[in-house]
Design a protein around this nucleic acid. Structure first.
Length: 258
DNA sequence: ATGGTTGCTTAGCAA
């Protein structure tokens, strides 16, 4: 089973790149974030013609998440569903072939101390409670998305410069750990131990990509039965090159079949 | 401290 997560930064602008990605990598599950379009504006027909089912939670202008699958899905779950009055489209989940797949777009956090920063920390705590309500650590589950958190110094091009930023602040990392402690582990880092310079996002500005000044903030986390089967993981840096790329590159993980 | 770039929407916000 091949799983990919990718922040597309507008699915309309990236439609041709999306179709090329499906053809190039043939994922079984593709989790998308930052669709930046209402569900009705999502390119359902083009994706279906490429052989994929789409389960979509769109939103005008901002956010928006989707799960694309080769096989048909059951039990779609839409939104954090915790009674909080929150219009932001940041979570969608399906069951496909005995696996639950979740696509999340964790809030960026704005500036330290801002309302957006508090919303980020609160959202990660709400995500933990969503897992407690809807899943069990003993069942196969992948939690994929743009978490807007780099877990470790190895995941940041210049940790000293980022330590007080929302993407790498100790409080953000602690909030992410609070999610993982439910029963998830990173599938990428164990396959690349101690290897520096592996990033999934680079700012559009200041030649960050050509200088590889990036962060690893896009993740595929898995429960134990699936994490034990992760056998290959890579970041598709080529997708960040050329005309009109997203500022994020896709993260790809292959799981052995049982 | 500020600015640099991109997308959505059309002046300013979000990232």
């Amino acid at each position: 089973m091949r799983v990919i997560t990718w922040n597309v930064n507008s699915v309309r602008v990236r439609q041709e790149r999306l179709l090329a990605l499906l053809a190039r990598h043939a994922p079984d599950v593709l989790c998308l974030q930052e669709l930046k379009v209402e569900s009705g504006g999502y390119p359902h027909e083009a994706v279906q013609a490429a052989g994929y089912h789409s389960t979509v939670l769109g939103q005008k202008t901002y956010n928006g998440v989707a799960v694309l699958t080769r096989a048909a899905v059951t039990e779609p779950l839409v939104g954090l569903d915790d009674g909080v009055d929150d219009p932001q489209a940041r979570l969608i989940s399906v069951r496909v072939g005995g696996v639950r797949a979740v696509s999340v777009y964790v809030p960026n956090g704005g500036a330290m101390g801002s309302d957006k920063w508090q919303y980020k920390l609160a959202w990660l705590a709400r995500l933990r409670r969503w897992l407690e309500r809807h899943a069990r650590p003993a069942e196969p589950l992948v939690l994929c998305g743009d978490f807007n958190v780099a877990p470790d110094a190895l995941d940041v091009h210049d940790p000293d410069a980022w330590i007080n930023e929302p993407l790498y602040h100790p409080e953000a990392r602690a909030a992410l750990k609070g999610v993982l402690d439910w029963g998830l582990s990173d599938t990428f880092r164990p396959l690349h131990p101690d290897e520096p310079g592996l990033f999934s996002w680079w700012d559009y500005r200041m030649l960050a990509f050509p200088k590889n000044r990036g962060l690893r903030i896009d993740h595929i986390f898995a429960t134990a039965p699936l994490a034990a089967r992760a056998e290959r993981a890579f970041i598709d840096r080529d997708e960040r090159k050329g005309e009109s790329p997203s500022d994020h590159a896709p993260v790809v993980v292959d799981f052995r079949e049982t």
